[in-house]
Simulated assay, not measured.
Amino acid sequence: MASNAARASARSAESTAIDPCRRRAALAIGLAPAWLLAGVPATARAQREFPERPIRWIVPYPAGGGSDFLTRIVGHQLAIDTGQPVVVENRTGGNTALGAAEILRAPADGYTVLSADNGTLVFNPLLYRNLGYNPQRDFAPVTLLGRFPMVLLVGPASGVRDARAFLEDARAYPGKLSFASAGTGSPHHLAMELLERQAGLRMQHVPYRGAANAVADLAGGQLQTMMCDLAAALGFIRSGRVRALAVADSVRLPQLPGVPTFAELGIAGVEAAALVGVVASVRTPAELVARLQQAIASAIHNPAVHRRLAAYGIEPVGGTPAQFATLLHQESERWDGLIRELNLTLD
């Protein structure tokens, strides 16, 4: 989603400290007299003072992509709000499994968290027999950061001007159209597979390593179509390098008010988004998970952060751990049938 993503993906890790622009004069606990703290156990004091040192935030994607952008914007505000640096580390590889493994190795103290999308938490467990982690067993949901709605795109060379014409052509020439994705098993790939099933289409899948390269080749005319998250596609759409035909959402998107939903076109059930949230080790005390959620949600709902994410094509959320856990369960049930129907595996 940015020009430096390819260079970033060549590195196994990149660390950037997000230094707070200002610090609180003191945390509330720091104002308490020493005699009040003398009888409080050290673990309880640590929880009350949380955070009292830098937070390490793992992103399992290259720098410059949508998950990375979202993490850094929220992390910057989190650093301002808490008075503690937030260190973002890009740990790529293994279809996000290498980044997820960092949480398994880290202390369960709330100071190491992972940006995890539905690829990491929903699709991977269905796609890999030997994954190396189990989201339900190993991770504690903290909050959903935001949604990346999916949009059906065509390139500039396409003579198709609207979604109905696209669907007619795709049905008339089964197997002739090629669609790009951000990778096999990615939200982009499965969103298009969902459209194929619901609309009775058959196209050829061309997987890429990330949405940025895929949408760039679509704009260059190398492929005919793709389902892409709005954040990656918005600049291309506004510049006229690709055309948006339909949105895979329940309602029209404010950034694309003239683009219909699939439901408006008479195709039910085509709703898909990349969902990016935060998880911690399942061994993290519930009190610390709650404090993390409150701090991160507060950063998300900062008006300036909210406006910037929305302008980029991201729907900010910041819900509770229970709401995030419920969503993940619902998503697993929703996509399990399609993945099994496709007999799609990655190992």
Rank of each mutant, 00 (worst) to 15 (best):
M1Q: 11
S3C: 05
N4Y: 07
R7I: 08
S9G: 05
A13N: 13
E14D: 15
A26K: 13
I29M: 08
G30C: 04
L31S: 14
R56K: 14
W57P: 11
W57I: 01
G65R: 00
F69A: 08
D81H: 08
V87Y: 10
V87A: 14
N90Y: 08
G93E: 06
N95M: 01
A100S: 12
A101Y: 04
A101M: 06
P107I: 02
Y111H: 15
S115I: 01
N124Q: 12
L127A: 11
P135A: 09
V142H: 09
M150L: 06
L153G: 06
R164I: 03
F166P: 15
A180T: 06
A182H: 06
G183I: 00
H188F: 01
M203Q: 08
A212N: 05
A212P: 00
L218D: 07
L223Q: 09
M227V: 14
A244I: 03
S250C: 05
V259K: 12
T261K: 05
A268H: 08
V270H: 13
A273S: 14
L275S: 10
S281E: 09
R283C: 09
V289N: 15
Q293L: 10
Q294T: 11
A295T: 07
A297L: 03
A297S: 11
V305I: 15
H306D: 15
P316S: 04
G319C: 14
G337Q: 02
G337M: 01
R340C: 14
L346R: 06
